[in-house]
Structure formats: C-alpha cells, structure tokens
Design a protein around this nucleic acid. Structure first.
Lengths: 116, 116
DNA sequence: TAAGAATATAACCGCTCAGTTAAATAGTCA
DNA sequence: TGACTATTTAACTGAGCGGTTATATTCTTA
C-alpha cells in the first residue's frame, strides 16, 4: 500500500531536511513558532548576530518554510509550512523517548522501576 | 501545553536532520525500508559506489538510525529507529500535498476543478 | 535633504562533507 | 597457506556552508 518514493524526490527531500539541519535555523523556527516576528525580535530571542539571522531567514524564505511581510522599516517573518512543526514534534518526541529509555535502563540496573 | 524546546536540544536535533539531508543516505534508508539487506544489495539498489555506500552506512549506524549484523563475509543492515519512516512519511505527504495544490491552482486557472 | 534605524548584502575564512581511488581487513574455501 | 569475496578504511579533492565584519539598501522622520 505504501509506494516507494521515486528517485526524483530524494534530492528535494534532502534539501528540506538540510534546512532543518542547523541549530541557528532551528532556533529561528522555534522563535517563530510563537507567532510572527520582525527580524530584530528574532535576533533577540535567538541570541545570534543580525547578519546571521538575516541570512538564515532568507534561506528559510527561499525554501518556502517562512513567509515575509514588509511594514515600514521592519520586516516580519512567520512560519509558512505545516511541515516544520510536525517534523520538530516527531523528532522531539523521539529524543524524549530515547532519553526515557536510557533512564529506565539505568533504573533497572539499580533495581528500581518507574512507569514505562 | 506545548513546551518550547530547550537550547541543548537544538544541536542534537540538527544532527539528526543532517543525517537525513543527503540523497544517497535517503536512498539507502529507502532501500532498507523493504527489509534487512547486506551491503552489496544496498549498493545495487541505490546505484552508488560500494565505498560510498559503506561510508554512509557507517554514519547512519553511528547515528543509531540503522543496526548492523555480521554473518560470514557479509554485513547486514536494517532500520533501527522508528523516526526514519515517520519523518519520511510526513515529508512525502507534504510534498504530495504541495504538488496537488499546484495542480489545483493550475486547474482553477483553466476553469476546471477536481476534488479538493 | 540629512540623519538615523531596520534589514539585507558582499566578501572573506575556516571547516565539514560527499565522492573517488586505492589499499587494507576479515572471512571463506580449496 | 593462498586465492577469492565482501566490506571497511585511508587519503585526497572540490564544493558548499556557517559565521563574522563591513558595507549597502530601504524606509522614516526631522
């Protein structure tokens, strides 16, 4: 029932993952998860340099992950792809699960248990 | 209800995405989705060079995405993280949706409609 | 028009990484 | 042991990318 994904899709998919494969971009996306923000605000929240944030925002925009809106001197960005939150949710869940497994294993070693 | 993800998670998450941000590795993972395979078989199915596949398999193994099993001369690899299939499903769905939207837009332009 | 603020761009550097080629390792079988 | 097979590893190269610094652009306001 599940179709194998065609070769032509491998590269665009890899490109999408590539966009998410950088801590700074993830920090920017996380910042935008709580709503549309101008560049300066994103700079504040991520603690990265202005030029750096601007550069990454441009990449994210080109990739179609964030949308751009200009208003006077400021430029506002917002998430523009439902993919982002879904992916982050899944990866985060997996990391949490992984961490929990490690803890449980440790507890078992100590002869203890917690709800698994 | 949704907790913001902590800074310490950004890098490991980025690393995970990085593993998926390469067409060859995606091809390898796709190959392994139909079951455990030895290196030579993966080489065949992906059409990449043997050394290249071996290198990527090592990376995927180090990242915990695939498991390794040795049997005589051959080495068998298999998917070892539920994350992989989940992520690929989501990305593929999104790409399909995106493609469908484009088609629909085109149909609308032509004054036609199909089930949306 | 001049000054200043918000954002974008250009140039540069160091590093990582994908792919290739060639050699090494490990296991099988005669 | 020696030939042969499957896989791994080492060394190298070229391209891409993240970050910084400095400069440019765009818009507002006085």
């Amino acid at each position: 029932m599940k179709k194998p994904l065609p070769d032509e899709f491998l590269e665009p998919i890899a490109d999408t993952f590539q966009m998410l494969a950088d801590p700074t971009r993830l920090a920017i996306l996380r910042s935008l998860m709580t709503g549309e923000k101008n560049v300066g605000r994103v700079v504040e929240e991520t603690g990265r340099s202005q030029a750096n944030v601007s550069k990454h925002l441009k990449m994210l925009n080109s990739a179609g992950l964030v949308a751009r809106r200009k208003e006077g001197l400021q430029v506002f960005y917002r998430l523009d792809d439902p993919l982002v939150e879904k992916l982050c949710d899944i990866v985060c869940d997996t990391l949490v699960d992984s961490a929990r497994r490690k803890v449980n294993k440790h507890m078992a070693f100590l002869g203890k248990h917690n709800g698994d």
